[in-house]
Design a protein around this nucleic acid. Structure first.
Lengths: 140, 140
DNA sequence: CCTAACTCCTCTAGCGACTAGAGGAGCAAA
DNA sequence: TTTGCTCCTCTAGTCGCTAGAGGAGTTAGG
């Protein structure tokens, strides 16, 4: 009920002003009431919702997931199975990304390490890029 | 010199046809000559260049980096210092991303693990998202 | 009351690296 | 000649914002 400007909400949540407007536009936040001068006025509930969104984004959830999680929080007596499975799916996705980046890191380390720092024509970095066969493993 | 269609090049390199056209548009590949019927005709050198681009993309290099690496390969007698530093910079970036994802994974694992699979109002997943204070560490 | 500085408003366009689709033309085999 | 494939160009969409134009409301000081 604290009647906050968009800038104040931004300060409290750490979400930038244009991002807040963007979230309203894509329906993550409700359109708040306006003042006579057409400025948005927010309340505490908006701040909580936005903090939820921000935190979920920080944890890497996609907007569609967040939308679903938000509708779930509005139905506190339902089973939390759906929330779990969203989070679990996301965890698996993160693990896939980590695995992929780990493989890349190995390849890059080898590349950089083996470089004799001579001329381009002898450069291991360039060689590996030019010929997939130099690669330790296939990402098919 | 083998006079290949764009589809054949796509098959040989594993890069999709629209992507090849896109790479031409952004200047990663030269505009090839055309047949009377206005179709692109590629040679072996194009295939090698495209394979280089593809491999670099697979390793996560950005297009701007690839552009630079390609100009370096055209000057084989220069020092490969620049190629090294591009690769090293990229390696560091990958390591940053891995570190961040590792932190996320920890948070998500905790979240999913601690969930009692009851009702939404008791759901650990929702609680953690709603209140940053439940989080193990701050991403400031 | 006037002005400067600040915040806010809407709207459009850009980022990166593609991908999808419309609408049409060339080409090869039956 | 018809079928079916490949190719052409062009535009717009993806995701989650971010930047900027151009204008209006608000506030503090003189």
């Amino acid at each position: 009920m604290s009647d906050l400007s968009i800038g104040e909400v931004a300060r409290r949540t750490g979400v930038k002003v244009p991002t807040i407007r963007f979230y309203e536009q894509i329906g993550l936040l409700p359109s708040p009431p306006r003042t006579d001068g057409n400025r948005r006025r927010y309340g505490d509930e908006d701040v909580r919702r936005l903090a939820f969104v921000r935190h979920a984004r920080e944890l890497g959830f996609e907007v569609d997931d967040i939308r679903e999680l938000l509708t779930l929080t509005a139905q506190p007596n339902r089973s939390c199975h759906e929330a779990d499975s969203i989070a679990f799916r996301h965890l698996q996705e993160i693990e896939r990304r980590i695995a992929k980046l780990d493989a890349l890191r190995g390849e890059l380390q080898r590349m950089v390490h083996e470089c004799g720092h001579g001329r381009v024509c002898d450069c291991r970095v360039i060689q590996v890029l030019a010929d997939h066969a130099h690669c330790a493993h296939d990402r098919h």
